[in-house]
Computed example of a mutant assay.
Amino acid sequence: MLGYVVARRRGEVDGLIRAVAERLQAEGMPLAGAIQTNVETGPLSKCHMDLQVLSGDAVVRISQNLGTLSRGCRLDADGLERAVGLVGAGLERGAALLIVNKFGKQEADGRGFRPVIAEALAAGVPVLTAVNAANLDAFLTYAEDLAEELPDEVGAMTEWCRARVAAAAEG
């Protein structure tokens, strides 16, 4: 019920997750969750990170501009929590699948989308996410025996989602 892909390179899985969400939305599947879009701002600055909420048309900026020479974490925790609230509300309205752009450091530390993932799983709603190598151990500890690693290929990920949604509807 908890499918994941491992992010091998920065930003790589964002496009995969987005493509899966777009295919499933085009088929009419009711989704909750958020997908990430990185907005390039120029060669001397880091991109903006936005989350598009799948159960509506909200786009939430989750990055802060800390300046061109900054090396600290650019995550805007308030923006992330706003997106989490919107995703949680979408899940409560009914969704066949929850898509979370990534199980990152916030989730590894018990924050971010972690409670929404637990809520979806408790309600029998399958979850698709991505995780990078740095957070993989924390993710696997959190997921216990529910986690299923998926190939990082849009078709296989989409088929996994369809099969889990169909199984959840039957059960």
Rank of each mutant, 00 (worst) to 15 (best):
M1C: 05
G3R: 04
V5D: 00
V6D: 00
V6Y: 02
A7I: 04
R9G: 14
R9D: 15
R9K: 15
R10N: 04
R10T: 13
G11S: 08
D14E: 14
L16A: 12
I17T: 02
A19S: 09
A19G: 05
A19R: 05
A21F: 01
A21N: 02
E22S: 08
R23A: 03
Q25C: 08
E27D: 12
E27H: 06
G28M: 09
M29L: 14
G33S: 09
T37I: 15
T37C: 12
T37A: 12
N38Y: 15
E40I: 07
E40W: 08
G42L: 09
P43I: 11
L44W: 15
M49N: 03
D50I: 05
D50Y: 10
Q52F: 10
Q52L: 14
G56C: 11
D57I: 11
A58F: 09
V59I: 13
V59W: 11
V59R: 12
R61T: 04
Q64M: 11
Q64W: 09
L66N: 15
G67M: 09
L69R: 15
R71F: 13
G72A: 15
R74T: 03
R74C: 01
L75K: 10
A77I: 14
A77W: 10
A77N: 13
D78Q: 14
D78W: 09
L80M: 05
E81N: 12
R82N: 12
A83K: 00
A83R: 01
G85H: 06
L86V: 14
L86Y: 09
G90Q: 05
L91G: 01
E92W: 13
E92V: 07
A95Y: 06
A95K: 07
L97C: 05
L97S: 04
L98M: 04
L98E: 00
I99G: 00
N101H: 11
K102T: 04
K102E: 08
K105I: 14
Q106M: 15
E107P: 03
E107R: 05
G110A: 10
R111W: 07
G112L: 04
R114H: 12
P115K: 06
P115F: 13
V116D: 00
A120W: 01
A122G: 11
A122N: 04
G124S: 10
V127K: 02
L128V: 04
L128E: 01
N132G: 13
N135E: 03
D137Q: 11
F139E: 01
L140T: 10
L146G: 01
A147C: 09
A147K: 00
E148P: 03
L150Q: 02
P151D: 06
D152I: 12
D152W: 09
E153N: 13
G155V: 12
A156R: 11
A156T: 05
A163D: 08
A167C: 14
A168W: 10
A169T: 15
A169F: 15
G171K: 09
